[in-house]
Amino acid sequence: MELQLGLPLFYFLLLGFAILMYVLLDGFDLGIGILYPWFNSEAEHDHLMRSVSHVWDGNETWLVFGGVILFGAFPAAYASIASLLYLPIMLMLIGLIFRGVAFEYRFKSQRSKIWWNRAFAIGSSSAAFCQGLMLGVLVQGVDSNSLQTSSLQWLTPFSLFTGLAVMAGYALLGCTYLTMKSRGALQQKAARYGQRLLLFVMLAMLLVSLWTLYSQAPIRSRWFGGSYSVLLMLLPLTAVIAARLLFRDLGRVQRQFAAATDINSRHESRPFWLAATLFLLAFAGLVVGLYPYLLPRQLSFYAAAAPDSSLAFMLPGIVIFLPLILAYTLWGYHIFRGKVEDYEEGY
């Protein structure tokens, strides 16, 4: 049993890691796109775009990685999830296309700039919304007969709400990233929006959690049915503490600016990591409820797993290349460290 589950479990965790990396990394650059309409001047827009133009491509690669891990390690799940969520996936892809090319064309355009601004904002927002929608579907579950893909089960008030919640969450990540990468008025704006978004995100997390516990008996019994319940309570508790610290840091950045003192660089960068922690905790909470299913209560990861010959084949690639990828990705971020103004250079 142990051995048989070993490889599929490894890939289940790897899939979780890929999704988490994607949500954190593309989360902040999609978030920048969502925030875009709330910044008005061309200078601000330039700054927003510049802050992520060198990383969006790598960030989006985690989405492809998640997709191919699902494809290679859990083909049955990839097949049914992808065709079930046909329309949200297609709309997400088209959103990603528009916001992706906006990076390339906006800096080379004059008259059409406004259209690339729109493409970036609408594309980012719709991609984030679709991702939230899909999250909602996975949380609420689907009927077993709904794999007949003509159903529109993915369209419910709950999934629409999670769509909005994910948009807000990404926007929050974007705000904290901007707080780290900018100065002056722009930074202040980001910190201010960040505080408001944080309140909404916490409220949304609370509502989604309560709704899930209320409507999904298996998830309720998982959270409250065992001796480990006390340990699980650490998740929401830590989230509240992280949110409290995050709110305070964003407030400090504003107060220090108002008092015309030097802004403590720790208070500038810590919000991003706190926001990332919130995402991590929310994700952990999600996994607690869903484990071991890829498609809730229908397809578990071990039922969907590819044969060992395939799982074993990918293993050396992952063990060797994933640390390398993380290393050079980190190096890339290091090269473009500091505020956006300091590495202002086109190609």
Partner: peptide, 30 residues
């Protein structure tokens, strides 16, 4: 999926990340 998927996983691991990771430096790192 068990045949094609792992090949594409290797494509992402050994190529896509590599290209994306160094493209930023190639374009903006002069």
């Amino acid at each position: 999926g068990a045949v094609i998927g792992p090949l594409m996983a290797y494509e992402v691991l050994t190529a896509f990340f590599l290209e994306a990771g160094f493209l930023g430096i190639m374009l903006f790192g002069w």
